[in-house]
Computed example of a mutant assay.
Amino acid sequence: MQWFPTPPTDNLYKFFAISGLLMLGGALFVIFALAYLDYRTERETDDSLYHFSSQQNQQQFRNRITAIKNLEPKKDLIAHLSDKLNNDLEFLTNALKVQTEIDVGYKARTPDTLDLVFDFVQARETFSLVAGLIYIVIAACLTVFGISCWRKKVQIPGERLNELDEEIKKASLLKLQLEIAQMQPMSETVKRLFELGDLMRPAK
């Protein structure tokens, strides 16, 4: 006596296969997300360094302009500028204005959830790598197991049943054709007997 109902293996194998594929899709999404976060972090780092350099340049220009206005020509010289440009107040003022206008649009971004995830992964790089590999292996095994079992236990038997059904139909059709062929000579025989009977009757 069967106490528990038989599980629908067809749906179970499909569930394994689809679950594995979804897990693999999730793994790909995480990989692309981490790659994007890495790219975004590098870009923001470059922007921060540029902002810091711009702030230093602005301070150098301000100090040099102040020194010129205070009639101190040798104070706060800017190393990468020539003596002529170091003493050109108009050039220094315009350069400070350009640096300030460029730096106006910079604003440090507030960290979000993706940043926290990326920081967690970076802090536990070895653990995250091992966990990711285990996750991918499990997903791949589920996919292969589900597809192979579904093909072996559902698809192939179904194809064989369809082929057997086709063979049974062909055999039934052939049998019917043989029966019809066997009936046709009998009708011809009966017709011949009637013809012989007409010949054997005496003429009136």
Rank of each mutant, 00 (worst) to 15 (best):
residue 86 N to E: 07
residue 42 E to F: 09
residue 196 L to Y: 10
residue 176 L to R: 15
residue 136 I to W: 03
residue 193 L to Y: 14
residue 141 C to N: 08
residue 29 F to S: 13
residue 3 W to H: 12
residue 47 D to N: 15
residue 53 S to M: 10
residue 147 I to Y: 11
residue 17 A to R: 12
residue 3 W to A: 11
residue 181 A to K: 06
residue 162 N to Y: 03
residue 103 D to F: 00
residue 64 R to G: 01
residue 14 K to N: 11
residue 126 T to Y: 10
residue 185 P to I: 02
residue 136 I to F: 05
residue 158 G to V: 00
residue 198 D to P: 03
residue 167 E to W: 00
residue 43 R to I: 03
residue 101 E to H: 00
residue 126 T to A: 11
residue 143 T to E: 12
residue 150 W to A: 01
residue 70 N to W: 08
residue 86 N to D: 03
residue 166 E to T: 01
residue 176 L to V: 10
residue 14 K to C: 06
residue 66 T to F: 09
residue 36 Y to Q: 14
residue 25 G to E: 04
residue 99 Q to K: 04
residue 3 W to M: 12
residue 35 A to Y: 06
residue 65 I to T: 01
residue 90 E to C: 02
residue 185 P to R: 01
residue 22 L to I: 13
residue 103 D to A: 05
residue 9 T to V: 13
residue 77 L to M: 05
residue 107 K to E: 12
residue 86 N to R: 09
residue 88 D to W: 07
residue 70 N to Q: 15
residue 168 I to Y: 02
residue 58 Q to G: 05
residue 194 F to E: 08
residue 76 D to V: 05
residue 44 E to R: 11
residue 106 Y to S: 05
residue 74 K to I: 04
residue 147 I to E: 04
residue 107 K to S: 13
residue 172 S to M: 04
residue 142 L to T: 05
residue 91 F to G: 06
residue 81 L to N: 01
residue 27 A to G: 07
residue 61 F to I: 08
